[in-house]
Amino acid sequence: MSNVPNELKYSKSHEWIKQNNDHELVIGITDHAQTLLGDLVYVELPEVGQTVEQGDESGVVESVKAASDVYSPVSGEIIAVNEELEQQPELVNSDPFGKGWLFKIKPNNLDELTTLLTAQDYQAHIE
């Protein structure tokens, strides 16, 4: 059973979204996703300042045998990326909801959050 924290929102493509405040969302990939991929060896992140639409490809997570795109769950501007992942992609495996976060977005439209899944919905989605 993979961990699906209750306080987060989720996308069907296995990103999690944490709302720090109205101007800052943190994005990562779920425990379920990192388990499927296996040991990550590389994380490609978007550039700070880049604007993205909901559903845009905004990064890649790579293991030895697979590579998977990361989709932006909302529209907005990238305001930070987790630079530690450049040297330590394994943080995504060891702490997907904490030190393994990928990037932060300043959202254009908070209403988009309502299109995302709750923890319960996501749990059902991956079963």
Binding site: V41, Y42, E62, S63, V64, K65, A66, A67, D69
Partner: peptide, 12 residues
């Protein structure tokens, strides 16, 4: 670095 290659990354 095989995740760059077609047998894993296919169209990308």
């Amino acid at each position: 670095l095989q995740a760059r290659e077609q047998h894993i990354r296919r169209g990308k």
